[in-house]
């Protein structure tokens, strides 16, 4: 199959947005407000942390905040000092910092950043572990959730649920990796 026809291509997968499990969007936003917009989205790889953080952005805009992004990855786990200095100097109380990958920061750096963003309107982070900020939500996945996503992407061409559940187990609930696996299977059709 041509890459452009693959239903599991990156651009198709990116259209799948976060689906809260066991909590509604209004409840999630209420909880965020109760935490004074300083909270952590916690969960393992491929559980939807970054997607949820992205999906919060329009909600903050609707509240009159300006979302400002910080992002660390395992490939790029540090900020350039000058970049961070300028970023922090430009923050004001109407800004909300959305920080993806906060747990990649060292302990001292994190403590300093937390202090230096105290005057911003909010600080929402993603992290693999709890404890950096009060937990907003622990992201998790289920085989049924994966099944729904695969059905949405592949439509009538979706494989049997039993097969999807096997892949879910193989990738230990990491939906991103499972969908990449599905891409490869479709690519060789």
């Amino acid at each position: 199959m041509k890459a452009r026809d693959n239903p599991f291509s990156t651009d198709c997968v990116l259209h799948i947005r976060y689906r809260p499990l066991g909590i509604t969007w209004p409840e999630l936003l209420e909880r965020l407000k109760a935490l004074a917009y300083r909270a952590a989205i916690v969960g393992p790889d491929g559980s939807g942390k970054t997607t949820l953080l992205e999906d919060l952005e329009p909600h903050f805009r609707a509240l009159g905040f300006t979302p400002k992004w910080l992002r660390l990855t395992e490939e790029d786990p540090t900020f350039r000092r000058e970049f961070l200095r300028r970023f922090l100097a430009g923050l004001n109380p109407r800004d909300v910092v959305l920080f993806d990958g906060a747990d990649l920061m060292g302990g001292w750096s994190w403590a300093r950043l937390k202090r230096q963003t105290a005057h911003a309107g909010g600080l929402i982070i993603t992290s693999h572990r709890a404890g950096l900020l009060p937990t907003l939500i622990e992201c998790r996945t289920t085989p049924q959730l994966l099944g729904e996503i695969v059905a949405q992407l592949a439509g009538d061409d979706a494989p049997p649920q039993e097969f999807i559940f096997q892949l879910y187990d193989k990738h230990m609930g990491n939906i991103r990796e499972t969908l990449r696996h599905m891409y490869d299977l479709w690519a060789h059709r």
Binding site: A3, R4, N6, S9, T10, Y183, A187
Partner: peptide
């Protein structure tokens, strides 16, 4: 033009 596939677009 754009790319579509397994990696970054």
């Amino acid at each position: 033009w754009f790319t579509r596939g397994k990696g970054t677009t």
